[in-house]
Computed example of a mutant assay.
Amino acid sequence: MSTCTTLSRELTEPLAATAATAATWLLVEQSGPWGAKALVESHLDTAVGRALETAAAGTGVRVALIRSPGRHADAQAAPHEVIVAHTAPGRSWVRRTAVTDPAELLALDLAALGAGEHGGLGTEHTGGPVALVCTNGRRDRCCALLGRPLAAELAAAGHGEVWEVTHLGGHRFSPTMLVLPYGYAYGRLSGASAKEVLASTAAGHTVPEFSRGRSCWQRPGQAAEHAVRLATGETAADALTVEAERADGGGWAVEVRHTDGRRWLVPVTEGVSLPPRPESCGKAAGTPSRMTAGPVERL
């Protein structure tokens, strides 16, 4: 059976610069089934889900639902675990709290959270990495078929804190995983490679081989940062920052800075992936956008 993931892998579609963009993640525990548009198609009150989605628009905050791996109750009693994470280099943090009613979250200042200001929300997460594995089969069957077994394996192995999550984008790269606190997304993972990613994250590093990008940057910045990592061999998660991203003809000129003072200029262009392929199972074949970065120039 051909799926969007098998076809993407066979066509060697690059993973780099495909991460969902979000400076801050607002993750709300909600057990039970999830629909394709989970915020308004789950046991979460539809009005609350729609209001959170509306309030987050333009703030840099991405709202998603999470649940524990494995079998779960069809409904959920209070409280609901809430994880909020800001992913900018050198300023990343993870805070957690719990709410009796998710409607309480409508009082949050999402603009401030998107800017990296938590205002003392909840308590600081001091444990290891937090892994979010996309498992929403109503969004794409590959996420359920590949994501749920991975989430269960990681949870059983005790490799950090593991949650199933509703949507990380890029179904054709399943199984996909976002890891906090740094906010790097990964794709085409196996149990072994996912454990490698979590161990590296715990040590303050990223694994470029499986990386889709850091969610705090737009796709041109993700592409440029990845190109610098490949050119230099740098894996420290917080070593690189996208300093400037400006339009340059038909693409972008992106400046990347290292914490040691080194700087690089990386040209990035946007093209399409050929031949056409479905971006998600059941969808018509299309030509997904792809970013090409380089050559990397030392400044």
Results as ranks from 00 to 15, higher is better:
84 V>G: 05
274 L>I: 05
118 H>D: 14
195 K>L: 12
259 T>R: 15
287 T>Y: 02
15 L>F: 06
191 G>H: 05
219 R>H: 14
271 G>H: 00
143 C>E: 14
55 A>F: 05
21 T>R: 15
78 A>E: 01
244 A>I: 00
196 E>S: 14
224 A>D: 10
47 A>S: 15
246 R>N: 12
207 V>T: 15
220 P>L: 05
78 A>P: 15
231 A>K: 11
65 L>Q: 09
28 V>T: 09
88 A>R: 14
152 A>H: 06
242 V>W: 04
84 V>H: 03
92 S>N: 10
166 T>A: 15
102 P>L: 11
262 R>C: 02
267 P>I: 07
167 H>W: 00
176 T>C: 11
228 V>G: 11
52 L>K: 08
151 A>E: 06
27 L>Y: 04
271 G>D: 09
235 T>S: 03
254 V>L: 03
143 C>A: 15
38 A>F: 04
286 G>L: 07
257 R>M: 03
265 L>Y: 01
108 L>K: 02
189 L>T: 10
257 R>W: 09
278 P>W: 06
185 A>I: 00
5 T>N: 08
293 A>N: 09
198 L>V: 03
263 R>A: 15
25 W>N: 00
236 A>M: 05
151 A>P: 01
166 T>V: 09
291 M>H: 10
283 K>D: 13
257 R>E: 14
71 R>P: 14
127 G>F: 12
239 A>D: 11
119 G>C: 06
87 T>H: 13
132 L>A: 04
132 L>E: 11
175 P>S: 07
258 H>T: 08
